[in-house]
Design a binder for these strands. Structure first.
Lengths: 264, 264
DNA sequence: AGACGGCTTCCGCTCAGTGGGAGCTTGGGT
DNA sequence: ACCCAAGCTCCCACTGAGCGGAAGCCGTCT
């Protein structure tokens, strides 16, 4: 009999979005069966929906039959936060040119930092962050600096959880970390030393928007440059001020402090 | 009676995607009613779907009640073509640093060029293209250079249509334009002079991938610099070669020559 | 205070969506 | 050449998710 073990209460919309989100974790392309598994849908349902998404260009099919997110999706998504990225990009670039180190801009997304833009050279550098990627706030300089200048309740909520430990150098003691945040607020910048990933360190300054913390502007460097990290502070401060000026009139409510991944 | 004048045959998926696409044309945020109009859906249907999309973070609601595409969408979409952008970005940046002019990389999407990445300075420049945006091929240098090196059937199909004319300087005579493409193929680069937009000109060279034309790499300049445009050719060629090398091993089938916007 | 525009909620009807299974295609093992 | 398995595509009768008109609500302007 048809429709025997359907799972009622699941909307079509949720199925479509689950299919799109199936691509989040995976580096490469997915087969139909992979998608069905990741999204928890029956194969034939997946097949029908995937076909429709492909017709619309939201998924694309590779010659080998596997699927990938389509450029149609990418095109549309470029409108999100465009004003911020367009306004900030040239300055992030300046920051890269002036320091020669990987420069990035990140905002808070729930309990994580979301990387909005990133400028780097062609030489290979250990990279933990990527544009559109997230990392825990307490392990990154941009994250620390955002948290340090956030409202008390955000900071309290953050510290009131178990903190991940990506490396042995990550600071995870809530009391010590709270002190560190106080010091960051006092000195106006944050640093990390191999706290996300061995071999790299970082430094970041706050970017304010309408009187509140808006974003973090930072540099990532190989650990070998760690001792000279603070020499970049004047440039960081200067560029931060320029970004503040360039973005002052842009409404960013929908970008700053956005909700956590998934549904809470 | 409920369900009186429904429009049957329309899938839920198509409605969801129509809602997302409603944001394509609009610069800013949309009200519920705007979305309903643009997507051609009844208000209450729009309301239900929009709410669900908002729960999932695919749309976000501004304090004033209007909707905008959510960062969740942007995050996911960053995976599309990431390899190409990540590999090419540093070189596009070099191109900008070396020339001081707006530099960009574009691929063909049906009968248009789709801008993949773009690096520019903080000084205001007339901008027609934007990342994720499309322009007609015959009006842009990147478009011309891609078309010039494309397979015959693509070129023939292109010329076999009425060509838009964004400015009075746009070349739209099919015969003359075909000749121009021949010349571009011979000389290895394309130029435009106020053909998309008054006040700006451009120059572009091809980027090959697996023996086929893959992308166009170009500069946009104010018309006042037009006479010195070709002085940048050596740099353009050099950077193009570097991008070819950096992207040689990346599979780009799903990005190159993608289908036209919407459903054909 | 009344009117208006835009958003939200309600609810019974109905057809779009469903998914097990059958059929097909592909590749690789023997 | 043959078989088998894995993965994809197609089919089709049942049914509850989706539907949308209408009523209610909530600011805002006059």
């Amino acid at each position: 009999m048809a429709g025997g073990s359907r799972e009622p209460g699941r909307t079509v919309t949720s199925k479509v979005l689950a299919i799109l989100e199936a691509f989040e974790s995976s580096r490469g392309a997915l087969s139909l069966t992979d998608i069905a598994e990741k999204s928890g849908l029956p194969l034939s349902t997946t097949h029908r929906l995937v076909n429709e998404l492909t017709d619309w260009g939201f998924l694309s099919r590779e010659p080998n039959g596997r699927y990938q997110l389509g450029i149609r999706l990418w095109e549309l998504a470029q409108n999100t936060g465009r004003q911020l990225r367009d306004a900030a990009q040239p300055y992030i670039q300046d920051l890269f040119s002036l320091t020669g180190e990987t420069a990035h801009l990140a905002v808070r997304a729930g309990h994580e930092v979301l990387y909005i833009d990133r400028v780097y050279g062609s030489k290979r550098v250990p990279r933990a962050s990527r544009v559109g990627g997230r990392l825990p706030m307490h392990a990154t300089a941009v994250g620390k600096v955002i948290l340090a200048f956030e409202d008390d309740w955000v900071r309290d909520a953050y510290l009131n959880r178990d903190l991940e430990r990506p490396t042995a150098h990550t600071h995870i003691d809530p009391r010590k970390f709270a002190e560190e945040l106080g010091q960051i607020r006092a000195q106006g910048y944050a640093t990390t030393l191999e706290e996300v990933r061995l071999g790299s360190c970082s430094i970041a300054v706050p970017v304010f928007h309408t009187g509140r913390i808006g974003a973090g502007l930072g540099l990532v460097l190989p650990t070998s440059h760690a001792s000279t990290m603070t020499r970049h502070l004047p440039v960081l401060k200067g560029i931060s001020a320029q970004i503040e000026r360039a973005t002052a009139r842009i409404p960013l409510e929908t970008l700053i402090g956005v909700h956590r991944k998934g549904k809470d």
